[in-house]
């Protein structure tokens, strides 16, 4: 590989043994980080994403106002020193609401992604690894779930519950895992037939450790990519649910419901800052996360040439 490695350089002086015989042993994490760092776009994505997370955490201290303070006399103001992102039709400070909204949107996105990835990976692994009748039954269940027009089911489930952040997370994740489950299953079906799996069996490893130690790490690249794309789609699902009044309820701000309240033509044409700022945060976050996903995929796969 192209990694400059001090030990490699020493080896050129064939007869000189490295003076340090102490084991220089790099952890998997260190290697991944080293490779990740080389991808400039991914590093930029990570920095931007970290900034957004910091904004979310520090929202109460860095916001110019409070999210539940409205001043109807100050409605639809242009961006100014007092209101850097302007104000919305109710007179709420957009910057404050975007900052607080990032708390909600990011929490929903991350938790939902975690839930659906966990379910999807476990379900897909079991299905793919054991194969046969188990696989058949499990995949028919996925087929059934996928053949339901999910969004309408989301609406039904959401309407049965009091809409809160937690119900939104629950509703999106119970239907969000099927795509990942399918992909994980496919990966595992192909990985489990590879020679090193049989070699692992021949060393006496258990099914459990074969799945977690040998099979899944080989499927990490598609899982990471799907998981990052998931964050993006969850942000959008949350927006859609909020729009229909079944997601996050105003006055609690989320990027989704801010966009929704700014979607009529008059607002878009006359007060464009109202949709632009939350929209920009969505786009920037989604892109940053996608770049991170790309970088991770390359960094996690040792076969990728740098």
């Amino acid at each position: 590989m192209g990694l400059p490695n001090p030990v490699v350089n020493q080896s050129k002086n064939v007869n000189i043994r490295p003076q340090e015989t102490e084991l220089r042993y790099e952890s998997k994490l260190a290697v991944t980080w080293k490779r990740f760092k080389k991808n400039k776009l991914a590093v930029t994505g990570l920095i931007v994403f970290t900034l957004i997370v910091l904004i979310a955490i520090l929202a109460p201290w860095i916001s110019p106002s409070k999210p539940d303070v409205y001043d109807i006399l100050d409605s639809n103001l242009k961006p100014s020193a007092k209101h850097p992102f302007g104000t919305d039709s109710m007179g709420g400070d957009i910057m404050t609401r975007v900052f607080y909204g990032s708390r909600v949107s990011l929490t929903v996105a991350m938790l939902t992604m975690l839930c659906s990835v966990t379910i999807g990976v476990i379900y897909g692994s079991i299905s793919g690894f054991f194969g046969g009748i188990i696989d058949n039954i499990m995949m028919r269940i996925v087929d059934a779930i996928q053949s339901i027009p999910t969004f309408f089911l989301l609406l039904i489930v959401a309407s049965l519950m009091v809409p809160t952040m937690w119900s939104t997370i629950f509703v999106i994740s119970i239907f969000g895992w099927t795509g990942l489950a399918r992909i994980v299953r496919g990966e595992i079906l192909s990985i489990k037939r590879r020679d090193f799996i049989e070699a692992a069996r021949a060393t006496g490893e258990k099914n459990k450790s074969i799945i977690f130690f040998h099979v899944l790490p080989n499927a990490i690249a598609p899982i990471v990519v799907i998981a990052t794309l998931d964050i993006a789609s969850v942000i959008l699902s949350e927006a859609a649910l909020s729009f229909l009044g079944l997601g996050i309820q105003p006055p609690t701000p989320s990027w989704g419901n801010m966009l929704t309240s700014a979607q009529d033509l008059t607002t878009v044409l006359d007060y464009p800052w109202a949709p632009i700022f939350p929209g920009m945060f969505i786009i920037v976050t989604v892109m940053a996360v996608n770049f991170i996903g790309d970088g991770l995929r390359d960094a996690l796969d040792p076969r990728m040439k740098q």
Binding site: F196, R201, A202, T203, P217, D301
Partner: peptide
């Protein structure tokens, strides 16, 4: 499983694919 890899070991034909690439 206690016997495999411990008392009886096996090596395979294809060294190129018998090691876990990751």
């Amino acid at each position: 499983r206690q016997i495999r890899g411990n008392k009886i070991s096996m090596i395979f034909q294809e060294p190129m694919t018998s090691l876990n690439p990751v």
